[in-house]
Amino acid sequence: MNHQVSHSAQNEDVPHSENARRQFFLKVAGAGAGLALAPSLLLQQVAHAKTADQAVSKEVRWGMLIDTSKCAQGCDDCVKACSEGNGLTGHGRPETDVQWVRKVTVKDKQTGKVTSLPLMCQHCEHPPCVDVCPTGASFKRDNGIVLVDKHICIGCRYCMMACPYKARSFVHEVVEDQKAHAPRGKGTVESCTFCVHKLDQGEQPVCATACGEDAMLFGDLNDPDSALSKRLQQVSSTQLRADMELNPGVRYQGL
């Protein structure tokens, strides 16, 4: 049932926006307006993205819907893409190695239904990690993503105690040859940034683009016309630990 709903939703949804894009193009072109206008208009209209020189806006709240019915057990494309994209290197020590996104497989205790899903920072509206951080290094940007300002993180790890999703990692070892866009170093705490360096320039997080099954739909929760909002209006989705009323930006479908 769930599967069908999501499938039809996607079938409707994606071509719809494609169509809208095409129609928009045609209209603009047909009206004889300068084609040079089109790209910038399109960028704002379609993706609600910002350019690198713009400040983030409160109008936007980034979020993600993960369709667990499409997420294959044993597939970790998103995890690999994340490690690759953000330069997360391990040392073969799973207990202290960093993980921004991880694959978890759960089984319902009553029904026995098995679900596989990626778990990362849920980018809460009311993040406990931000509340407890003594220096304010843990903060929420206007556009809803929760980040660590490593310039003022003192490495006390209180945020890791506070996070209900165990989404944060402490950098336990010296890091060298970091990715230029993902600075990270020993003694500070970090977690999924929704690939903020890409987001700031109008691109999507690498996990969402890497998922071969299109199980991760990324978009603007505040924009009723975004593909994400439209899908969320149609299908039922779950917040992890909804009882805590943290209002996470990451939602799960079919859990």
Partner: peptide, 9 residues
């Protein structure tokens, strides 16, 4: 209500 059967973390 669920039991974790597989996790890398």
């Amino acid at each position: 209500g669920k039991e974790v059967i597989e996790s890398s973390f």
